[in-house]
Write a protein that binds this DNA or RNA. Structure first.
Lengths: 253, 253
DNA sequence: GCGTAACCGTTACCATCGGTTACAGGTTGT
DNA sequence: ACAACCTGTAACCGATGGTAACGGTTACGC
């Protein structure tokens, strides 16, 4: 077992603060360990891995896992946050690049496909609201992650629409739509693998840009696909990004 | 229900043909009864109904259900076909109307939202690949229905693209994308209900048309959104429709 | 009418898996 | 020494998907 103690300083006198503090630290690390174990179980047994598998993968028995996760749903949630974090870490830089619209979309989409290509099982797990406890009323928590992404897109979309002076009422459904579109193409691609990554990235980019361009055009706005927008400098993802950070709290790299 | 008995010829000698034939007929009816029961169970207990619930709803005990369905997956599949059939029955007329592009899209989308509004639980069940037997390796069968729809869209899309002289390579991913888009907006709408049906239908239609229009425009083709296309008369859904019929074999209206 | 083949339906059971209980140590700071 | 926190295990519970074994009943063919 790794030492994981590390905490030199702290609270010399009085209370058992040092202890408490250290244990707290420790628990976080342990949780992360189990998330790793769950990922291995996921690769080994597919999306229907059992809690015993996770425990075994972590080299312990089930109750130990349950000391760190209240539920299977809780584990799924942790997995979800892990995945979301990975995804955001890749998507954000791409999204914030100062590129022209189309290259920027392509960059994000490429990051997306690269990521799901790398963690196909995790992706499948998250895309399914297959849900943890079948008997848990609490079922749709994992769903939150997709929701978070949709929310991000809503924010971006809404900001742009307002920047263009458009009614932003459609931002939310459109955001969910685009997320669904990308997700669906992603799932299909992972299952069929009938074309290379470059191709689906290209096709996906093309249809998304077509939608955006088409909508703007219907409102009499034309945008150069390959020339950077001024607005790019304004519309960013701060808030959403920090939201993601908040959610992923406590996970070490 | 369509008799589909067909067995004109017969094993003249030997065994009881009349018997076997009649029972066959009967089994089909019985299966349909259970599908109805399952739908009631679905409304009563949500998407996580158990086999006992279905049995109870049908007024019998579990083993009886298992005489007609091999699996829970099998039941789900039947439910899926039922749902697909309903959906197709509504979508096809809309799709085959001789309308201009945008009204036609709107008509299909409206049919879609009307249907899921009417059978929200069934829709949720099908959209989930949550699935039946957790331990069943056979898990993604229900998925087939979404696949069927995507295939239909692929066919339509591909036909149009070829009719316009475009490379149809992107038809399949785009079809999956559009299906995912609509499905995603549908799920979101059912969950949130933050706007009336007319509004999402309008928004959804708008983004789909924008995508199509944008893609065509990028290829130098412009289409009048509100004038019927000549091609409409050519591109239809025969094959796909009959495919759906084949799948739904044995289910009465 | 008798045999047969299909159905009807039940009670009682198994296996799996999520989740829990109860027990038995370790380590570490006061 | 002791308290407080961890470590871990084996054995168990309960819900649920799925089966076995049993005993009718219906309707046809001979």
């Amino acid at each position: 077992m790794p030492d994981r103690v590390k905490r030199s300083s702290k609270q010399s006198a009085s209370t058992g603060d040092a202890r408490r503090d250290r244990w707290k630290q420790h628990r976080i690390a342990r949780r992360a360990e189990f998330v790793e174990a769950a990922l291995r179980a996921l690769d080994k047994h597919g999306t229907e891995f059992g809690m015993d598998d996770v425990a075994a993968e972590a080299g312990v028995t089930k109750p130990v896992v349950y000391r760190h996760f209240t539920d299977k749903a809780d584990l799924h949630l942790a997995l979800g946050q892990h995945g979301t974090k990975i995804l955001f870490n890749r998507l954000m830089p791409a999204l914030n690049e100062e590129l022209a619209p189309v290259p920027r979309i392509r960059s994000v989409i490429d990051a997306f496909f690269t990521t799901i290509d790398e963690y196909p099982n995790l992706y499948r797990l998250l895309v399914h609201p297959s849900h943890a406890g079948d008997r848990l009323p609490d079922a749709d928590i994992v769903h939150e992650d997709k929701e978070l992404i949709a929310t991000s897109v809503t924010a971006v979309l809404g900001d742009y629409m307002r920047a263009f002076g458009l009614d932003s009422g459609a931002a939310e459904p459109w955001a969910h739509g685009v997320v669904g579109l990308v997700q669906s193409i992603g799932t299909w691609w992972l299952d069929k693998r009938s074309m290379g990554r470059d191709s689906i990235v290209e096709y996906t980019t093309e249809i998304i840009w077509a939608a955006i361009d088409g909508i703007l055009r219907q409102r009499g706005i034309t945008v150069e696909p390959n020339k950077p927008l001024e607005i790019n400098k304004v519309v960013r993802m701060h808030d959403v990004w920090s939201e993601a950070e908040r959610k992923a709290t406590g996970e070490g790299a």
